[in-house]
């Protein structure tokens, strides 16, 4: 650690900067999909970009307050959480509906043999 980093860490109480090369934009597919959904909903007029920035920064602050070191790698987690909240606030889908659907996908995944596409229809409880 350089002298500057020592001083800065002492002053701000934060870790050194995470670094990256000009590597992949998204680390996992879900990050890309969460990104694209927010951009699309904004373009559909579901929320303004100012509303989006406010929701995202509020979520980042909340996560930091409960101990997220917030080194940039958790960014799309905050992004998705902010998106879920805005979607609920705007009446597009309730938190309960999202949770029920998450559980359905989890059951569908477990019911899908390895290597085959996971489809929502594979949820054993969906067949009624």
């Amino acid at each position: 650690m350089s002298r500057h980093e020592d001083i800065a860490a002492a002053v701000c109480g934060v870790a050194p900067l995470p670094r990256d090369d000009e590597g992949p934009v998204f680390r996992e597919p879900w990050e890309a999909q969460a990104f694209a959904m927010a951009v699309t909903l904004h373009e559909r007029g579901v929320f303004t970009w100012a509303e989006w920035a406010a929701a995202l920064s509020a979520e980042i602050s909340r996560a930091q307050a409960v101990g997220d070191p917030d080194l940039g790698d958790s960014y799309y987690r905050h992004w998705l959480k902010a998106l879920e909240q805005l979607v609920a606030e705007k009446g597009v889908s309730s938190a309960a509906a999202l949770e029920a659907r998450r559980q359905a996908w989890d059951r569908a995944a477990h019911a899908t043999p390895h290597g085959q596409p996971i489809l929502l229809e594979n949820d054993p409880l969906a067949k009624d």
Binding site: M37, E84, L98, R102
Partner: peptide, 10 residues
């Protein structure tokens, strides 16, 4: 799972 839930509903 959460992304698939949101996406499939949207």
């Amino acid at each position: 799972l959460r992304v698939k839930a949101l996406e499939s509903i949207l």
